[in-house]
């Protein structure tokens, strides 16, 4: 591994990837704000009562709010879905290869690396070093896997929640209603799971590693940063002659 500090930057993200990231972020914001506004009943509400009241008044009723949420959700899933299909080989497959945690062994390794990283934030486990990381570190891989699984769950359950009452007659088969109720549980759980991860994602991007945020704006990453944070990736970039 090189010990000298390399200078300069390298292009690591293309414009379309950056667009999709910010498109996803914007739609998440809109869909979370509208989604939390739809769920109103005291027993099932996720946020204080003022929020559904405010959002429903703002949009002229829950019918409009739910429609906006559904249109937003379909646009979000549709654009990302079409993008994923059209760019499967170039973007999606390499991303999945780098980010998906599919075996218990990989999950344990990533959990250990994530724990050490988190402990270091509080000055703990200083004697333990974070194992060398590839393009994505352990926490990013775990978060990425969770977001991919959750997004698929959110999109499919969201479609059912929107379309089932319009297309199916619930009184003809009890399963339709049962599926609807569990779709709601899965939809809400998956959203909360992603939000949980997003707290960490935003903290690291804004406070700990603003270089990553810069990369998500310009597409360029400092080679020295890659060498320090992602030594395994740096080595592979070196092998490929890119740095």
């Amino acid at each position: 591994m090189s010990t000298t500090k390399p200078q300069g930057t390298i292009k690591v993200r293309t414009r379309d990837v950056i667009f999709i990231h910010w498109f996803n972020a914007f739609f998440w914001l809109v869909l979370v704000l509208t989604g939390f506004g739809i769920i109103s009943g005291d027993f099932v509400r996720l946020v204080p009562a003022f929020w559904p009241t405010f959002m429903q008044n703002l949009l002229g009723g829950n019918v409009n709010l739910a429609l906006l949420h559904a249109i937003g959700g379909i646009a979000w899933a549709g654009v990302i879905g079409v993008y994923a299909v059209l760019n499967f080989k170039r973007v999606v497959l390499p991303f999945l290869k780098n980010v998906l945690v599919l075996t218990p062994k990989a999950a344990i390794a990533d959990l250990i690396s994530m724990t050490i990283t988190l402990a270091h934030l509080f000055g703990l486990l200083k004697n333990l070093k974070v194992p060398p990381q590839g393009r994505y570190n352990g926490a990013q891989r775990l978060l990425g896997t969770m977001i991919i699984a959750s997004s698929l769950a959110i999109a499919s359950t969201g479609l059912y929640l929107f379309l089932a009452p319009k297309l199916l007659t619930f009184s003809t088969l009890a399963l339709y209603g049962e599926l609807f109720r569990w779709a709601l549980v899965i939809h809400v759980s998956a959203v909360l799971l992603v939000l949980l991860g997003l707290v960490a994602h935003i903290y690291f991007a804004v406070v700990e590693e603003p270089e990553s945020l810069e990369t998500m704006k310009s597409g360029n990453a400092e080679i020295a940063f890659i060498q320090h944070h992602n030594p395994l990736w740096y080595e592979s970039l070196k092998k490929e002659g890119k740095v």
């Binding site: 099932v44 996720l46 709601l184 549980v185 809400v188 759980s189 909360l192 939000l195 949980l196 707290v199």
Partner: peptide
């Protein structure tokens, strides 16, 4: 399903997100 949202999903979500923050 309704009980799950009220007794499991919402409390865990609130504790989880609050804890992370």
């Amino acid at each position: 399903a309704g009980k799950s949202i009220e007794s499991i999903v919402n409390p865990l979500g609130t504790i989880g997100i609050g804890g992370m923050m």
